[in-house]
Write a protein that binds this DNA or RNA. Sequence first.
DNA 1: ATAATACTCGAACGTCTGTTCTGTGTCAAG
DNA 2: CTTGACACAGAACAGACGTTCGAGTATTAT
Lengths: 226, 226
Amino acid sequence: MMMMVRKSKGLGERHQRILDFIASYQREHKHPPSIREIGEHCNISSTSVVNYYLDQLEKTGHIERDRKISRGMRLTGNTPLGDMFRVPILGVIQAGEPIPVPANADFGSFTPEDSVEIASSLMPGKEKGKELFALQVQGDSMIDAMINDGDIIILKPTEDARNGEMVAVWLSDRNETTLKYYYKEKDGYRLQPANPTMKPIMLKKTEALEIKGKVVMVIRKVERYN
Amino acid sequence: MMMMVRKSKGLGERHQRILDFIASYQREHKHPPSIREIGEHCNISSTSVVNYYLDQLEKTGHIERDRKISRGMRLTGNTPLGDMFRVPILGVIQAGEPIPVPANADFGSFTPEDSVEIASSLMPGKEKGKELFALQVQGDSMIDAMINDGDIIILKPTEDARNGEMVAVWLSDRNETTLKYYYKEKDGYRLQPANPTMKPIMLKKTEALEIKGKVVMVIRKVERYN
DNA sequence: ATAATACTCGAACGTCTGTTCTGTGTCAAG
DNA sequence: CTTGACACAGAACAGACGTTCGAGTATTAT
């Protein structure tokens, strides 16, 4: 009755309701709903009416249907959302403490509380399949890296770096942890701050320098500051 | 014959093959395979044998099955990943230019190239359902906000702010865009840099101040720096 | 007003799908 | 050798599922 919408009006209320249901059902169950399930949830008593609407949604490109199999339907969306993965948060990184580094077991199971979800599309292609770990910055002393207290940094474990890569290093002689761009030079190493107004750390080859990881991403949740 | 593997060997080759097939089929089709499809692809000629293996995989926790519906099966994985959403990237934010602000249509359809995917779990609860937009930072002049050239900032559109919130403002008298913490004071406004070593901007009430949005997140892809 | 079009309904039907059952083959232990 | 456990096969079946059809209702255009 009141649910009848003319085709000339474009995507109607019932179309949208069906799409919403398909989307939320798919998210929850990882498979599409059946026609009868769509009917039950959208107050449509006949499978042929659901079919009628699905045909229209297929015609407008919102869904794709495979008529040869059960539950053969999926949302196209304008763009499907991509993949996501979890990165374990191993602890904090702060100036005067060694850097927590993952053991092999740290890449296995982890819970929402000690991991962070990252959309795959945010990661450069070469880091996607890699085992990454996250650390939360504690303190104000990574300012020279333009990184704030509370920021989450995501690292690829490595003990080597190429020139120009931002690394997390532990300088045991100085009892210092720092994040800087790494450059190997003739007779030592240069650790260059991301903040261009600040001076680099110059290290001789004899000085201890432990690269613990390469920084690939920084995430900052900006909160109200009091 | 040669495919028969004793249970005492743990998760067998055929178990793994079935799991791999389920995973790749699910990724491609967005729904699980049927038992006959699993059989065809894993060289199992009888649906009862597929059922036999699925029962075992269910028992070991690798899959969940819903026996009341067709294709009622899904991989468990360690932890279900949550939701994700897209935020439109409207353009760049740079020092001497007005800030791109969303029109209503900007929250509708968008493509991967002009949007960024964000895991819902990264967003504070109160921003989750909101219409957000993203801007890419261009230039070095947001340094006082500890924000780099190339960073992506995510904003909630607003023309008001509360004390302590980081806002994107356009100061038309100065022809300047800036990101700072906002404080309303007795006879004007104070825009405080995130970098504690830098000075605030003090504005009189008569000076033009256009708040365009509140910053809720900063994402930095750390690349090699040459 | 009528005619055309779009939407809605329910029954019936064919196909997909998973389960159950029975039987066979292999292996290890007694 | 027998027995029991496990792996495998195929047939049969019940139920889930989507499609088709005819009829009726609502809306729009003329």
